[in-house]
Amino acid sequence: MKKVFISVGEISGDNYASELVKRLKNYSLIGIAGPKMRAAGLTPVANIEDISVVGLTEALSKYSKIKQVFKKSVEILKEGVDLLIVVDFPGFNIKLLKEAKKLGIKTVYFISPQVWAWGKGRVKDIVENTDVMISILPFEEEIYKPYVSDKFKFFYVGHPLLDIIKTYETEESFKEKLSVPKHKKIVGLLAGSRESEVNVLLPIMLESAKLISRTFENIHFVIPATVNMVEKVLEKVSKYKDLPVSVVTSNLSDANVPKFENPSYEVMKNSVFSIIASGTATLEASIISNPFILVYKVSPLTFFIGKRLVSIPYLGLPNIIAGKEVVPELLQEECNPLNIANKTLEFLTDENLRENQIKEFESIKAKLGEKGAIERTYNIINRLLETGQV
């Protein structure tokens, strides 16, 4: 049986890769995995919780663990692997691609790093060490097209979120499971899946929620927590005993809170508004048509360096795809409780503001291609494994 190593470094990548794992049952699957990949049947050699970070300075605290996971991954590649699939997470995965290339292992990059925003110098490294690039964003084709050859193939498959996003709860059933009164409106607080994000952004969001609840008594806040962060989230929330707030998580968790198959999607679907950390969740909210604002805060050094590397005017994927500010972005100093509360109140008191944003989301969604991205990706990978070419 052919062996496939899949390397993922973030919860969003776990979400996408788990769908591939479900389809690649005819192969021996190992790798660096998140909870959904593990549940789908992949054998983990390490977990994304060990290596997932945001920012340059934040990575220092996990440097030793990341180095250890990388060394272990390379040892497994040397033992014999037929294909390496890496998902985004360039700092780690490009190095792993180089090691696989030295060993003559076929390589697939599923979901290109955001080289169009920063790290354009990485394109050469990616092309030289990748046999097949599978892209999920339409504008990436013009970046990679000049490099296409017999040694480097490029495929645009559309966005997997169009297939992955599914919701099951009605507003009534969702509120019932959370014991939230029917007359109350839900506002989502999505602080991210990494410890550094939860530590920095969730307290700011909770302070914002305190301010919002002083104006709106009929609001109930809901925080979807990933399996790896649910205990940390509960610890933060425990300091806000008078705040109308609930925590929900995945049914893969053992935590004693309401569970859903896709907690973030259920929160977005049933919220009148959300406050969301920069990342994949912003695009998910756009597809679900959940009005929101984007917030982001990292260490001053990380932001200072990042500003000099980034070559685009927006941080959020919805704004990048739209080519304009559809979603307000509150970054760094602007990411504070008062600003977040005031901007949220604008949306909660102005129906036109919410409706206009939802209309823009329809245009963004239309630019993401057709459904079937995961199946198209599987077909490419399966063909490569079976025939050695695509």
Rank of each mutant, 00 (worst) to 15 (best):
M1S: 07
K2C: 05
K2P: 13
I6K: 02
V8L: 02
I11V: 07
K22L: 14
I30A: 04
G34A: 05
T43R: 13
P44K: 09
A46W: 12
I48C: 03
E49A: 12
E58G: 00
S64I: 06
S64R: 15
L83I: 09
L83W: 10
G91S: 10
G91A: 09
L96S: 07
K106A: 10
I111N: 03
I111W: 11
P113A: 13
K120P: 15
V123H: 08
I126F: 03
T130I: 09
D131L: 00
V132Y: 12
F139P: 04
E140T: 13
K145C: 09
D150Y: 05
K151E: 13
L162W: 07
Y168D: 05
Y168I: 02
E171N: 14
K175W: 07
K177E: 00
K185E: 14
K185W: 11
V187F: 03
S193Q: 14
R194F: 02
E197S: 04
L206E: 04
S208E: 03
S208D: 00
A209G: 05
I212H: 00
N218Y: 07
I223F: 11
P224M: 00
V227A: 08
V230N: 01
K232Q: 12
S238V: 09
K239C: 10
K239V: 02
D242S: 14
L243C: 06
N251A: 01
F273H: 08
S278H: 00
T280K: 08
A281F: 06
S286C: 07
I287M: 13
I288H: 12
V295S: 02
Y296S: 13
S299K: 09
L301R: 08
T302Q: 06
I305F: 10
G306E: 06
I312G: 00
G316F: 12
E325V: 03
L330G: 03
P337R: 10
P337I: 13
N339W: 11
L348M: 00
D350T: 04
E355I: 00
N356K: 15
E370R: 15
E375V: 05
Y378A: 15
I381F: 08
N382A: 15
T387P: 01
